Amino acid sequence: MTKATPNPAMADVAQLSYEQAREQLLAVVTQLEAGSASLEDSLALWERGEALAQKCEEWLEGAKTRLAAARVSTGSTSGD
């Protein structure tokens, strides 16, 4: 599977903090659930939502990696 050409309108997603991306993702979901957008607008919202969800996932994976590294460096192996 090939990747689509990056959408310049989504470029700002890369600059968002986790909190910003999550807040915007919630707004997108709310708009989609309202069902008042045109098909084209709904598709654009969906694409933005996917990009925001991916950004949130990247932040969370990074946090997990940092926590695992901190546990290793302190010698903690407990999952508590």
Rank of each mutant, 00 (worst) to 15 (best):
K3V: 11
K3S: 12
A4L: 10
A4K: 11
T5V: 06
T5Y: 11
P6Y: 09
N7P: 03
N7H: 12
N7L: 09
P8Y: 07
P8N: 08
P8M: 10
A9F: 05
A9N: 10
M10E: 14
M10H: 15
M10G: 01
A11V: 06
A11L: 05
V13D: 00
V13R: 04
A14N: 01
Q15C: 09
Q15K: 15
L16T: 00
L16I: 01
L16N: 02
Y18M: 00
Y18H: 12
Y18K: 13
Y18S: 01
Q20A: 14
A21K: 02
A21V: 05
R22L: 15
R22N: 15
R22T: 08
R22D: 15
E23S: 09
E23K: 12
Q24A: 07
L25Y: 06
L25Q: 05
L25G: 01
L26D: 11
L26R: 13
L26P: 00
A27G: 11
V28P: 03
V29R: 11
V29D: 10
T30E: 12
T30D: 14
T30P: 00
T30W: 03
Q31V: 01
Q31F: 00
Q31W: 00
E33D: 14
E33M: 09
E33I: 05
A34R: 13
G35W: 00
S36F: 01
S36H: 03
A37C: 08
A37T: 14
S38K: 04
S38I: 04
L39T: 10
L39I: 09
L39M: 08
E40K: 09
D41L: 13
D41E: 15
S42E: 08
L43M: 10
L43F: 07
A44T: 12
L45Q: 10
L45H: 07
L45G: 04
W46Y: 13
W46I: 00
W46D: 05
E47P: 00
E47T: 06
R48A: 03
R48P: 02
G49H: 01
G49Y: 02
G49R: 02
G49M: 03
E50P: 01
A51H: 04
L52D: 07
A53F: 08
A53D: 04
Q54F: 02
K55V: 03
K55Q: 14
K55H: 09
C56P: 05
C56D: 02
E57H: 14
E57Y: 14
E57P: 01
E58W: 05
E58P: 00
W59A: 14
W59C: 15
L60C: 11
L60N: 14
L60F: 11
E61W: 10
G62A: 08
G62L: 03
G62Q: 09
K64L: 06
T65V: 11
R66M: 10
R66N: 06
